[in-house]
Nucleic acid binder design. Structure first.
Lengths: 192, 192
DNA sequence: CAGATTGGCTAGCGCTGCTAGAATCCTGAG
DNA sequence: CTCAGGATTCTAGCAGCGCTAGCCAATCTG
């Protein structure tokens, strides 16, 4: 019995090792550098071992994405907690969100840009993902109008943040005016 | 002289053929299906011919993207022209923008999602790109506040649209509430 | 200790973007 | 009309990709 337990534990550890290695490699050299060969070399196993844990490269990215969601949720929660007013909380969460995306671009891409077959807007979505969304929801709720749906408004606000981040990161929006754009967005959402 | 002219013309025609074939292939089967081999077969030339016109696959995508911008600019202009009030114009352009992205996802990706080394927020940006941005700018200008910059506000509004589109297309936002989100966005930007 | 089973590895498939060098075609001079 | 020279296009191949079939060794079971 205990032997199987140890085996299972070792497997889980190795799986975590893969996810961590993939994240680190992606964060330092970008996702293009995360090839199955390099990843296998990094964890000091052969390629096929990866496939005994994950269906394919996309599944590994998905696993990294889920962990990223947890990280993001933690940061957003802290931002929300440290802000006082409703508008301040919205601004703080927005700033933290975009900051996260800029500090950890590879992680952000795995979470929200790359095509990963994760369930998103359903109850089956990973817990960490729902937690991150929930943090945004909590600061959007207070600025939701009578005839508005807080969930849908949160989606809209989130999308706006996502757009700002991705367009800026790909060089389509100048970095210079980022703060201004963020302020404009928060203004237009919190003003009544 | 005339012979060189003919050659130049034929070269230009072939280049256009490549761009068109790439766009068609991408629109019917996605960018993953646009390999240099398939593209070469489609235009009935060998692979290296592509590289005598473009630096690489990315450059071909960039060329497709520029044409796509022209298409988008035309649609946005029509939408703007057919709307009456300021809020209606904003809503019409927003709806047309998201509609374009949903109708022609591959084209949209080449323009705004994929990494293409096109100059964007500079005077060197392709004319078609500036035209498309200008169309959005023109409907945002009237809703710009006293202490706001129309250009930056346009960037913000555009980013919001982009975020809505990309998150929805990747399955991260439910398609169902799209219209509602669009309305919310336009409301919050046009309301004073 | 012998046999069954699990698990990892080697090797390889079909594909990718891209390119060096051979082959072919066209042009313009004699 | 012929033919060298230059431009142009093609064949063939490189290195690397994601992924997998099948072998081999270590481990567990009776």
């Amino acid at each position: 019995m205990s032997i199987q337990n140890r085996r299972k534990r070792e497997r889980a550890e190795r799986e975590q090792l893969i996810v961590t290695a993939a994240r680190e490699l992606a964060e330092t050299e970008g996702w293009d550098a995360v090839t199955t060969r390099r990843l296998a070399a990094r964890i000091e196993y052969s390629q096929p071992v990866l496939y005994s844990h994950f269906k394919g490269k996309d599944a590994i990215m998905a696993a990294v994405a889920v962990q990223g969601c947890a990280d993001l949720a933690v940061e957003l929660r802290a931002a929300r907690a440290s802000a006082t007013g409703t508008r301040e909380a919205l601004a703080a969460v927005a700033a933290t969100y975009t900051s996260f995306a800029r500090r950890r671009p590879a992680l952000y891409d795995a979470m929200f840009t790359h095509l990963v077959d994760l369930p998103f807007a359903t109850p089956e979505a990973p817990e960490a993902l729902q937690a991150a969304f929930g943090e945004i929801l909590r600061v959007v709720e207070p600025i939701t109008g009578e005839d508005e749906d807080a969930g849908v408004l949160t989606e809209t606000f989130w999308a706006a943040l996502h757009g700002l981040v991705t367009l800026m990161r790909s060089g389509r929006l100048p970095e210079k005016a980022h703060e201004t754009r963020l302020t404009l967005l928060v203004d237009h959402f919190s003003a009544r």
